[in-house]
C-alpha cells in the first residue's frame, strides 16, 4: 500500500506517517534531488540545523554535536519558552553508509527507539524512509501518549507567554 502511495506522481511530495506494527512507526517522503544531496543535508550539522526544528514548533536547537560515522555519537539540545531546562537527545550511530542509510539509538531512556533512515534514489529523486523501532509495544504507546499529552500543554503555555508579551 505504501509503495503505491509514494509512486503515484500526485502524492510524490506528501509526507506519510504509518504505524507499521505494535513497535514500529514509519514516515516517508520523496525529494526531488539525488540521494547524495539529501544525505548531505541530513549528515552535515550546519545543514541539519536548518531544517530539523520546524519554526511552528516554537523550539530552537541550541547545540548540535553530530559525529556522523559508525560508532560515533550525537547530542542535540533544544530550548523552548515553556521548559526550564534545555531538552537533550543523545545516542550512538550504529551504522552510517554514505548516501544510503543511517541507523542510530535514542538513549534518553532505556525504552528509546532505534531509528533507521534510508535514502533510495531512482530517476534523480530520493525516497526517504524514517523508521523507528521501539523495544516494546508499551514504549511506543508511551511515546504516542507522551507527545499527545505534552504538546497541547506546551502550546497552551506558549500561548500564555506570548499573550503576556504582546
Amino acid at each position: 500500500m505504501l509503495t503505491e502511495k509514494v509512486s503515484s506522481p500526485a502524492a510524490m511530495n506528501r509526507t506519510a506517517v504509518e504505524r507499521m506494527s505494535d513497535r514500529e512507526l514509519i514516515v516517508t517522503r520523496k525529494f526531488n534531488a539525488p540521494a547524495h544531496i539529501v544525505f548531505e543535508a541530513w549528515s552535515n550539522p550546519e545543514l541539519f540545523k536548518q531544517w530539523w526544528v520546524p519554526k511552528s514548533a516554537g523550539m530552537s536547537l541550541i547545540s548540535c554535536d553530530m559525529d556522523i560515522r559508525t560508532g560515533g555519537t550525537y547530542r542535540l539540545a533544544f530550548s523552548h519558552p515553556a521548559f526550564d531546562q534545555p531538552m537533550t537527545f543523545f545516542g550512538t550511530y550504529r551504522e552510517v553508509t554514505p548516501h544510503k542509510r543511517i541507523v542510530w539509538t535514542n538513549e534518553e531512556s532505556d525504552q528509546g527507539a532505534v531509528t533507521t533512515v534510508t535514502f533510495e534514489e531512482s530517476d534523480g529523486k530520493t525516497l526517504v524512509t524514517f523508521h523507528e523501532l521501539y523495544p516494546t509495544e508499551a514504549a511506543l504507546d508511551e511515546a504516542l501518549a507522551g507527545s499527545a499529552e505534552g504538546l497541547p500543554e506546551q502550546f497552551a503555555q506558549l500561548d500564555e507567554l506570548l499573550a503576556e508579551r504582546s
Partner: peptide
C-alpha cells in the same frame, strides 16, 4: 513541516 524545510534546503543545494 520538517520535510518541507528539508525540501527547500535540498532544492537550494541542488
Amino acid at each position: 513541516a520538517r520535510f518541507d524545510a528539508l525540501d527547500e534546503l535540498v532544492e537550494h543545494l541542488k
